[in-house]
Design a binder for these strands. Sequence first.
RNA 1: GCGUCCAUAGCUCAGCUGGAUAGAGUACCGGACUUCGAAUCCGUAGGUCGCAGGUUCGAAUCCUGCUGGGCGCGCCA
Length: 632
Amino acid sequence: MNEQQFIQNALQKSIEQELIARRLELGETRPGQLGEQLCPEKPPKAELGDWACPCFPLAKIFREAPPKLAVALAERLRTELPGWEIEPIGAYLNFRLPRDVVARSVMEQIALEQADFGRNEELKGRKVMIEFSSPNTNKPLHLGHLRNNVLGESISRIVAAGGAELNKVNIINDRGVHICKSMLAYQHFGRKEGPEGPFWETPESRGCKGDRLVGDYYVRFNDWVKEGGKSEEAENPEQLALKMLKEWEDGRPEVRELWQKMRKWVLDGIAQTYIRCGISFDRLYFESETYKLGQELVAEGLERGIFQRREDGAIFIDLSDCKLDQKVVQRSDGTSVYITQDLGTAVARHRDFPFDCQIYVVGNEQDYHFKVLFRILHLFGYPWSEQLQHLSYGMVVLPEGKMKSREGTVVDADDLLDRLEELALDGLRERGRLQEGQDSKENGAENSENSEVGLNTARSIALGALHFYLLQFNPRREISFDPKESLAFTGNTGSYLQYVGARIYSILRKAGAEVEANADRLAKYDPETWSLLAGGASDHAESSANSPEWELLKQLREYPKAVSLAAAELNPSHVVKALAEVARRFSRFYHDVPILSSEEPLLSVRLDLCRATLQVLRNGMELCVIPFLESM
RNA sequence: GCGUCCAUAGCUCAGCUGGAUAGAGUACCGGACUUCGAAUCCGUAGGUCGCAGGUUCGAAUCCUGCUGGGCGCGCCA
């Protein structure tokens, strides 16, 4: 039973007693409903208490003003909840927890569970498949993918923390006219003149990542179209692309060979970006493999009357009855469209991993696509089709508007990460943080700025800043990305979490103390020590009502709730926010309360509070794909 | 035009599904490093919750209308 229910139960009893004392009848209301109507909530200000409950709903039954009721109920609750402070203020009943008990229970729980603190079993036994990233093999990843990637990875970790069995998958869109476009451009413009004669350009010859190279040819194709597209075939490039797609589906060797080569360039390049971002997949699906199954399904659907054939041969589904209009599922020339492969992919995936639920992390510009997809799978009668979910996240827009690949306003993922790493390195340099034992001795040479350790730290800071930034908003919300302001390391950022972690590490190092919390040690403290900790025993504890220690402890207790809420809503921002709040409250505690210079037993128990905070930060940062740093 | 999502401090966003004086960060201004890491902390200021109605003890939150925006409405993906 959680605390909220605990309070509700006590309320329920008190209300019943009060009713009896007043000889009032319940009338239509079930006895059990009374407590449920009163929902304990967080007061707007910490001074008011730890929990609060408005008495408005009871006014009718008791035929008395809520403030008077609150006073009467408070009296009864005091005997119901010994140790708690209960205070009626206006129409509200305010509750204050017995602090020594709470402090001890949170810290013991953290010490016992350690890396598992925050995990729960709400999704135990559920098999969840999650699709995210979904790159095209004709260009590198951009800012939009970065949001998608970190959302997918973070939600995966959060859902796994809920006990679900998880399968992370990526559908690689390596088939279609857009792929043919970059291939065509390469065929026409990829022949270069070198000192030793002509050659076909490769990532090595240009000295860049393969995804970048192919992406440039994709852009080149669009320029070609604008130029009027002169080619020896005297057809325009768009037509050539469709023709090439047909040849690809027919398996023409030259086309397949070029496709294999360019596809690998992009896949290798994108794989590097994934590694850099700390995200991974259990399995890759390729549209080039699943589209055939999609075509089989189209044939089956046609036979079963789910789809219809038009005079020109195109196959479509009529969904005008549910306002989804008509949708073509196979072109008149027999080639597949986007949704064809998604049908095949869904079926293939359920064969590979019989999921209870599948989450598609895909941008909201595809809301219509997924409505149609889910509808079709429903009409096919797959039972699992009822458990498909589209996590429709908002776009990332720049101050000047939407990113457009053709206009070169796309923010390239690798470029952005490079820029962030440079800024992080500048930050380390300014703070003189590139020396001080950050270098390995075997490196011997010098504490140079280019040391491996310094670069790794900068990478972690950059990634932390980016991921914190991208996860702090509601996923469904469109976010505007201003490079100048968004790439900050001060204020509410990933670096803030890392900084607090590093400071805790530092203080534990200085104390010569171990880093892990230890439940046996905690068991030795007496109740008075716990009261000293929670109540704020610092010299200037003029208001022990809400000491920094108590505020911190309460926030540590909030962390598991944030994780389960994030899992329920598929919204990692709850975890990010809970962590930022932990960091803020720790900073205040750290600032206001001396730790190393305090005397026993306060020294020990305060160090234990540091350890508990550290553990929560680490656990949460792991879920948000924000690297933890022992020093920065 | 149709569908769909959105509108809260100068800016970027919260607001726990109807409750107390609407909160953070950032920017601005003012304080705090001889003391555990100043990528920090503290304080001041900043709002007619787009507009107008409605529902009720009570609305940023629910309903209707209006205004202004995003996205979608391809045999692109």
